[in-house]
Write a protein that binds this DNA or RNA. Structure first.
Lengths: 218, 218
DNA sequence: TATTATTTTTAGATTAGTCTAAATTTTATT
DNA sequence: AATAAAATTTAGACTAATCTAAAAATAATA
């Protein structure tokens, strides 16, 4: 059995290492977990002991298959709960994260699978992030950043890179949601800001905004 | 903020002391929590420090208003989640307890209240136990044990006193659920077993069974 | 009421997870 | 390659929650 803390570390490693394939440094784990490197080292040793990560001193860690699966299932639960909160309990996409952080640790396979069924087996969460299946596998949909779209091209919003409350509220305010059609009207070479069309409105957005919105060409 | 452990102790005190009115002994708390009396004493001191219980050495504890409310809200969440699991996720009444024990600690007022609304503001959980309202108040419905029903009388099943998996499975097997109509046909003075009619079937039940089923006269 | 039994508390130890500060290893730079 | 900088680990300490064993208080009984 994994503790809450172990699950959170595994999840951090999973996210930093792109689903757990890449070696991850102690410092990056500590940073993501908002703890000290020494705490991260302690936990890494514990996870290595349990064969959930591969670890050689000073060389960082990678998830084992066992560790990857645990992390992926936590992510699966997190994203399913997010869908539940939005679809069934009237949460907005900027309100779901903190609650899902708690719900993702509930241990019950039946609960997870029934929830999945209740929601109609969704493949993405309210931010456009993919939901791992029961075996912890993800079907990655190709998506690019809005900043990569050329002048004159059409695209559809399919996800966010930054899912902070502030950013999501900004998008809400400007009527950008998953599925919204966008078109790039012009770009400003000086600061890489761009003028875009949202449905029939026009809006000038900074490069920071354009760099955090995933779209697909239409 | 209360920790998971604090919440569980408060809930234990709440349940032992009938919604927290009655003074509760250290040993009874330890027993319910499946820990040692010394551990219970330690936690009692912590709860007293936080003004969640009134405590005088060797005299047991009672919940303060603050403590009572926290405990009642945990119970409210537990029972709402039980309804959710049964109504929305196809759990049976003997499967819900362990998962609800986890879900009851999720902290989000919005979650609790939206869940309440999704379920249509239920007043009882799947075992017939009352669900406290937002202020932690319960409307107690009068209910008596099946063993108190006289020969020839009709009644309706409104709850269980023992909600163990074994007992609930026994009831399922014998087609007894909340709302089921029962009639007492005869009683055996020797062992207090009784013959009852369930819908059109007949069944002999032991005194143990009759002492754990809540009914109301019909 | 004196003595015994029971309940409760205290003292001291243990584990998980965290921290600071110092030591060590790796990486970068002269 | 030698040295400086950065990253990582170790050592030792702290807190929350638990435990065992012993001491103290209360309750029960002779």
């Amino acid at each position: 059995m994994t503790t809450l803390s172990e699950e959170n570390y595994l999840k951090a490693i999973y996210h930093i290492g792109k689903q757990g394939n890449i070696a991850v440094s102690t410092n990056s784990i500590a940073e993501k977990m908002r703890t000290k490197a020494s705490s991260a080292t302690d936990m890494i040793k514990k996870l290595a002991e349990k064969k959930l990560v591969d670890y050689k001193r000073y060389q960082g860690v990678t998830l084992t298959e066992k560790g990857r699966l645990i992390a992926a299932i936590v992510v699966r639960k997190h994203r399913l709960w997010e869908v539940f909160l939005v679809e069934k309990l009237n949460f907005s996409w900027d309100e779901v994260h903190d609650v899902a952080e708690q719900l993702e640790h509930i241990k019950s396979e039946k609960l997870t699978n029934e929830l999945d069924a209740l929601l109609g087996f969704p493949t993405e969460d309210p931010h456009g992030d993919p939901i791992p299946d029961k075996e912890g596998y993800i079907k990655e949909t190709e998506k690019i950043l809005l900043s990569q779209i050329n002048i004159g091209e059409q695209c559809i919003c399919v996800g966010v890179k930054d899912s902070s409350t502030e950013y999501l509220k900004y998008l809400d305010k400007n009527k950008v949601a998953l599925g919204t059609s966008l078109a790039v009207i012009s770009k400003e070479p000086f600061d890489n800001s761009m003028r875009i069309a949202i449905e029939s409105e026009q809006l000038v957005i900074s490069n920071v905004v354009a760099n955090n919105l995933f779209v697909k060409r239409d």
